[in-house]
Nucleic acid binder design. Structure first.
Length: 429
RNA sequence: UCCUCGGUAGCUCAAUGGUAGAGCAAUCGGCUGUUAACCGAUUGGUUGGGGGUUCAAGUCCCUCCCGAGGAGCCA
């Protein structure tokens, strides 16, 4: 009977068949140790020449790294085996022989591995990171499902820029210019009036020529948007959300975090409420650290790291100057020069993982802001309609899934947290 | 777009301006408990492309291409 490697421990003593790919082989004249990966896990198979036919032993000699193989034998618990269970083989066959597999057991540079991303996916660290990503995505779905949010997928092909600033990927739309979406938020706001609590999760595109470990041209973002939720509510939702996701990763990805050699104590600190500082306080902290930064300046990557390192937990920075942020953000009722905006900075230098705000619900103020930003009114008419027909206060935020996953995994670069990263000038494979 | 560093065997890297090398991989042989197994042997090169300086260039100069890191911008 074919058994997934993951379930082998519960079949100890039984004769089982495993099929998969040969991850590694060590062989002497009379005994072989084969690490076989089947997608659910990796198991060591022990083959003694005396126990198998001459044909099967020839197959052991012939088998190369990443050949497709099938082994039959007795599963047994043995502490000498990686993973604690192994198969004592009675038969072994190569189903498809691999020759000249590019990724060897020794070290490779990232550039080489990225050229072979389709094969690199098979390696243990990559499988661990992508499994964490998968768990994060599932946890996101569960979080919003359990709280009665409705999934509203926003369009990827859009007629205009959402915020008017970022560089977009342009494409031809039957003779008209269309752009790949850089945010689903504007399309979520009308849906709030239909469903109250909504979210979207999908790919987002930025054509900026960024070339750093914190950037991808194509990345995934989850964006909740809630009717009648004020700024304080949005901060609390973000806090609860991040805490929930971190808890899920700790609960269900212990094996992956071990492979990634992640210091889980850093993630275990992510509980309860997160510290909050205002933008003004953040500037003061940076100035005390000797940074030359003034009120009104944006944070650089180094600034974010300084701020984040001042706390164990993720830290909210709130109340940014109005003209630093997007046109739709609600001004602070106590100081109209500030907006009810927040960024959440992850610890350990992982940077901004969440950005959000309360949205302007007053029609005339939003119109004024569009004009101030020199944005055309006509393409945003539908967006203004949200404020025209039964306006309501509402708030939301967006979280970058790769940045969150990179933080959980302790990876220095976003590219390993997405199966096929799209980076500056790099779109292969 | 700008700044910095880099490109030598399939991979990771050495090589004062003076004969292009090692480890791993591959191939062959040996080894009954290996953990990136180990041991021996063999194979493997238009030194990213083009131009220049020089008796002589992997090495110095110019230029282009490609890669890595960072800045700006952002999630």
């Amino acid at each position: 009977m074919t058994i997934p490697v993951r379930q082998l421990k519960s079949h100890s003593g039984e004769t089982v068949t495993v099929r998969g790919w040969l991850a590694n082989k060590r062989r002497s004249g009379k005994i072989g140790f084969l690490q076989i990966r089947d997608g659910s896990g990796v198991v060591q198979t022990v083959i003694s020449r005396a126990d198998v036919s001459e044909e099967a032993w020839e197959e052991v000699k012939r088998a190369t790294q990443e050949s497709t193989v099938r082994v039959t034998g007795i599963a047994r618990v043995d502490e000498r085996a990686p993973g604690g269970v192994e198969i004592q083989a009675t038969d072994f066959v190569v189903r498809s022989l691999t020759e000249d597999y590019p990724i060897t057991k020794k070290e490779h540079g990232t550039a080489f591995l990225m050229e072979h991303r389709h094969l690199w996916l098979r390696s243990s660290r990559q499988r661990a990171a992508l499994a964490v990503r998968s768990e994060v995505c599932q946890a996101i779905r569960d979080f919003y499902y359990e709280r009665n949010f409705t999934l509203i997928d926003s369009p990827i092909l859009t007629p205009t820029s959402c915020e008017g600033t970022s560089t977009l990927f342009a494409t031809d739309y039957f003779g008209e210019q269309a752009y790949l979406s850089q945010s689903g938020q504007l399309y979520l706001e009308p849906a709030c009036a239909a469903f109250g609590k909504v979210y979207c999760m999908g790919p987002t595109f930025r054509a900026e020529k960024s070339k750093t470990r914190r950037h991808l041209m194509e990345f995934w973002m989850v964006e909740p948007e809630v009717a009648f939720l004020d700024f304080e509510g949005a901060v609390r939702l973000a806090e609860e959300f991040v805490g929930y996701l971190a808890g899920r990763v700790l609960d269900r990805c212990a094996d992956q975090l071990a492979v990634l050699e992640r210091d889980v104590s850093k993630i275990e600190k992510v509980t309860g409420s997160f510290p909050r500082i205002t933008y003004r306080e953040a500037i003061e902290i940076l100035q005390k650290e000797g940074k030359e930064i003034a009120f009104g300046d944006d944070f650089g990557g180094e600034d974010e790291t300084i701020l984040a390192n001042a706390f164990d937990q993720p830290v909210f920075v709130t109340h940014f100057p109005v003209d630093m942020k997007a046109f739709y953000m609600q001004p602070d009722p106590e100081d109209s020069e500030l907006s009810l905006a927040m960024d959440l900075l992850a610890p350990e230098g992982y940077g901004e993982i969440i950005g959000g705000s309360q949205r302007i619900h007053d029609h005339d103020l939003l119109l004024e802001r569009l004009q101030q930003h020199e944005l055309p009114i006509e393409p945003f008419q539908w967006y203004l309609d949200v404020r025209k027909y039964g306006s309501f206060p509402h708030s939301g935020f967006g979280m970058g899934i790769e940045r969150f996953a990179a933080w959980m995994c302790g990876l220095g670069h976003l590219r390993e947290t997405i199966p096929y990263p799209r980076m500056l000038y790099k779109i292969y494979p």
